[in-house]
């Protein structure tokens, strides 16, 4: 029962360097992480930490140099294009930017039908499923005929979530799905993520740079820095009593939305920096 759904072991991703004799760039350096069914694992890090690369590697969009990505016991880092395509009903994605992740010239109906078409779903079944999906992400059913530009950022992200859920996947890679959204929209979209997880038992690998967000949605958290995971554990432990110096620095740098508490945190941070 508790065997992981996704099990990544010693994953290395190198990007070829630019130029003839350039050194390859190591985006991921021996990363191991697992996600259990119905679990949300948060992946926190700053830009260049490799967190997005990790997500893309699971999706087959980044080149795997070494290591294994096991999904339900099968190593999916070595699949052929055809086998990888079959996997699309199990692993899905929600990207950060709701503006570029939806084709602006396609209607919502066409966008949501895309994964269903790929699996040769019949027209009537597809229409029914699209209606269910729109209901699930709380969008009106007349949305199918409209274009992405008719929707706000938060609504577009709901459409992206609906597309990801279309094939009832067991794992969704969420790559900064709320960081382009306004504060009030952000909370509602996060609640939608949790609600869907409760209803369907889908697992999330939730990539974000925002500590408050990761704390809000994740069961477990892993902290990435320079292509490595430097700390991991249950959300409560990692976010309240971090042990790795980088995690501590990261936590201290995030401002608290309360002036008095923030002044204390700032003074502690400056004192810590002075000690070093």
């Amino acid at each position: 029962m508790n065997t992981p759904l996704l099990d990544i072991r010693n994953l290395v991703v190198d990007y070829p360097g630019k130029g003839l004799r350039a050194q390859p760039f190591r985006a991921l350096d021996s990363v191991s992480i697992d996600v259990r069914p119905g679990e949300c694992v948060g992946l926190v890090g700053e830009s260049g930490s490799g967190k997005t690369t990790l997500g893309r590697a699971v999706l087959g969009l980044a080149p795997v140099t070494r290591g294994a990505i096991d999904f339900k016991g099968q190593n999916i880092s070595v699949l052929s294009t055809r086998e990888r395509r079959r996997l699309s009903s199990d692993i899905q994605v929600v990207f950060q930017d709701p503006y570029t992740s939806l084709n602006p010239s396609m209607t919502i109906g066409e966008i949501l039908a895309e994964p269903l078409i790929a699996q040769h779903t019949a027209q009537s079944a597809a229409r029914k499923r699209i209606a269910e999906l729109l209901d699930q992400v709380k969008l009106p059913s007349d949305a199918v005929k409209r274009l992405p530009r008719d929707f706000s950022g938060g609504q577009r992200q709901r459409i992206a979530i609906a597309r990801a859920l279309a094939l009832r996947p067991q794992l969704v890679i969420c790559d900064e799905p709320v960081s382009a959204l306004d504060l009030s929209t952000q909370a509602r979209v996060l609640d939608l993520f949790t609600e869907i997880q409760r209803d369907t038992g889908v697992a999330y690998l939730f990539i974000t740079h925002d500590l408050d967000v990761v704390r809000y949605v994740s069961h477990r958290v892993a902290v990435m820095y320079h292509g490595k995971i430097v700390e991991r554990g249950d959300t409560a432990q990692v976010t309240t009593a971090p042990t790795h110096p980088y995690t501590q620095r990261l936590w201290m740098a995030a401002p608290i939305a309360e002036p008095v508490a923030q002044r204390e945190r700032r003074e502690r941070r400056l004192a810590m920096a002075a000690d070093l």
Binding site: P37, T121, R168, A187, R215, T235, I256
Partner: peptide, 24 residues
């Protein structure tokens, strides 16, 4: 709408039924 440090996800519980078994 601000997420405060108190807003923390409850611990993981393994789902009773494997929803993943539902095929497309």
């Amino acid at each position: 709408a601000i997420l405060t440090p108190d807003n923390i996800r409850e611990p993981y519980r393994a789902p009773n039924t494997m929803k993943g078994e539902v095929t497309t």
